[in-house]
Amino acid sequence: MVGEQVEVRSVPARSMRGTTRSLALAAAVLSSALTSAAIAEEVLLTLSNENARESSPIEWTREDLTALPQRRIQTATEWTDGRPVFEGPLARDVVSRAAGHGERVANAVAVNDYSVEIPLKDFERYDVILALSVDGRELSLRDKGPIWIVYPRDQHEELQDPVFNSRWIWQLDRLVLR
């Protein structure tokens, strides 16, 4: 079903992978024998909170993110043709794991170090998702993946204001709460 936001899966969130997988990733790249299990272990997103310096950053693999309740949003964008269907967990579900210390914004950083500050109110007011797939196809680095912040633009007219365009950050790598 498309055309509106739909919660397509609701399973209990699993525990985060709190350890770095860089060595495993390097080994996998060098061996050219990347298995699907290894892909699942790759860290896609790092979530940290500047207001809680004592707590260590939370690392999210694809498996962790897909374990959260998924939402679908069908919407037009300025960077795609037609009205593709995006799917992924709600941004508020993800940031809630590190929130709770008076944060107001999330500094979203892409793999090319492009960053933008997103008010956390956006995540509360709208069903913003961290899209992992588009039209049923997993987002890769080559097509703005693996994570793309997607707003329900067609469902809320005010989200069509250009000020929100900069918040549609793709190739998301880190979220830092402030």
């Binding site: 960077w79 795609t80 680095l141 080559r142 097509d143 703005k144």
Partner: peptide
């Protein structure tokens, strides 16, 4: 990343 940037031309 370069691929994704180049692919953006012509989309949307």
């Amino acid at each position: 990343i370069l691929w994704s940037r180049a692919a953006q031309f012509g989309q949307g």
